[in-house]
Simulated assay, not measured.
Amino acid sequence: MNLALFDLDNTLLAGDSDFQWAQFLIERGALDRELHESRNLEFYEQYKAGMLDIHEFLDFQLKPLARHSRSQLDVWHSEFMTKKILPLITINARKLIEKHRLDGDLCIIITATNSFVTAPIAQALGINNLIATEPEQKNGEFTGKVSGIPCFREGKITRLENWLDEHNLTWLSFLQSWFYSDSLNDLPLLRKVTHPVAVDPDATLKNHAEQNNWPVISLR
């Protein structure tokens, strides 16, 4: 058996679901535009530059979940999927997933974006296994805090290895492993797999891929 890992934002999606979710809430009037839009853009630029403080960002990103009931959030997310996410899923992304599925590979989406935002996206992509940052919940409602280790940078390796252990697997369970990502933030996990692939990469990752003879592809 082989392992196929997929980053989500700007990899399988031609855009960033985390950023789009905050923008969607602003457009719906659930967040104050003046207070949140510039901050959302600032965090996005920090992420792209590899300078994001993940805990500061999660404090910003998860608090809005605690201000609204889960039922209201679910209604908004359904609209969010239709308006913001489905247009970002490319034919080539679906073809790549299908190739690995037909090869019998274990397919996992591994993303820093929280599981409330990403679980329905993984479902829409036909991938049952999701490793994401987990928002804390109490009595079915979000607290605005993170639960456990954020699935970001080296945290992706930790979260993946914990997931494998829970499923009685290790790296040695796989003859080959792939990880598809666009971001310099994913270099730690890209270095762990046998087949790192840069997908529509940022400048830093593209340069690193070219220096190390990693494939560079586009799904756009």
Rank of each mutant, 00 (worst) to 15 (best):
M1H: 12
T204G: 10
A66P: 00
E42N: 13
K95M: 10
T90Y: 11
T82K: 13
L88Q: 06
I85C: 10
S69C: 07
R70I: 05
V146D: 01
W171S: 04
S38F: 00
P196C: 07
N212Y: 06
K48L: 14
F174Y: 11
S69Y: 08
D74G: 03
Q137L: 08
H55V: 04
M81V: 08
F142D: 01
F142M: 03
L184F: 03
L164A: 07
T11W: 00
S38I: 02
I110Q: 00
Q61R: 08
D105I: 05
E42T: 08
I127L: 11
F152W: 06
I91A: 12
L41S: 11
R220P: 05
G155W: 01
I109Y: 01
I89K: 08
P150A: 08
V146I: 15
C151H: 04
D200S: 14
K206E: 15
N2M: 03
K83N: 11
S71N: 06
H195W: 11
G29S: 14
R191T: 10
H208F: 15
S78W: 03
V197H: 00
N10M: 05
H55M: 09
I127Q: 02
E45W: 04
L175N: 14
E45C: 06
E27F: 02
K99H: 13
I108F: 01
Q61W: 04
S177W: 12
F24H: 14
S183I: 01
W163V: 11
N168Q: 12
R153V: 01
N114S: 14
T143I: 01
E134I: 15
E134H: 08
T158E: 09
G50H: 03
P188K: 03
I85R: 05
A122T: 08
S71P: 01
R101V: 06
F6P: 00
E34N: 08
W76G: 00
K84E: 07
W76L: 09
A132P: 08
M1D: 06
N162I: 11
G50C: 07
D18L: 05
D9G: 03
A209C: 13
S177F: 12
K138S: 05
I91V: 11
K99D: 04
N213S: 13
L169I: 02
R28H: 08
L189I: 15
L175C: 12
A4W: 14
D74W: 06
E134Y: 03
I121L: 03
G155A: 03
Q176G: 04
Q61M: 07
G126W: 10
